[in-house]
Amino acid sequence: MLVEKIMKKNVITLSSTATVLEALQLLQEHRIRHIPIIDKEKHVIGIVSDRDVRVASPSILDKQANQQVLKKEIREIMSTPVVTIHPLDFVEDIAKIFYEETFACLPVVREGKLVGIVTEKDMLYTLIQLTGTHMPSSHIELKVPHEPGNLASILAVFGKRKLNITSLLIYPDHEDSNYKIVVIRVQTIHPLPVVKDLQTNGFEVIWPKPLQGAEE
């Protein structure tokens, strides 16, 4: 999956001469946490987070505090240089940046110009979609020997029953590296017939499990 598929194209931005107060208002009004700072040519020259702005603002508990700081220009507090990504980058690679770095937002830049933004939240939403749990479906989990051909035989069982699969995930089996855990979300309220077929075909179904499974 490419960044351009998950990025937000409508980006809220400010110029470097905007005030800290403007940034504060913008963050609250749009309920966002990051504002890229751009110049006239839409080059990203910095970024401010809600934390940058809060650190720079006077304490709300201190009524006498000098409010003048709110009139300062944003370039004094913005972070720079900014790590940016490209619309054709892979989402998987972006996830690694988020995992390794301490920031939670990446401006997307094409030919030097800002074209979008991806946040950790967008990444998580993508993950939810990968798991298929946003569509009506049932969860089936199998423990499968890590050998060629098994997945094909499993999917053939679903195909025979004309069942539509909404997502398919393969995890490592942490207890036994010779096996994989295959999780399939399938568009049916009644997964039992296909579960039976899978078992008849020799596959180990972990979920749904029979009642006695509760007494483990």
């Binding site: 298929g132 749990t133 946003h134 479906s137 049932s138 969860h139 309220i189 009644h190 749904p208």
Partner: peptide, 9 residues
């Protein structure tokens, strides 16, 4: 819970 059961939501 929809973690396992239909419809998931």
């Amino acid at each position: 819970t929809g973690r396992y059961l239909f419809p998931g939501t």
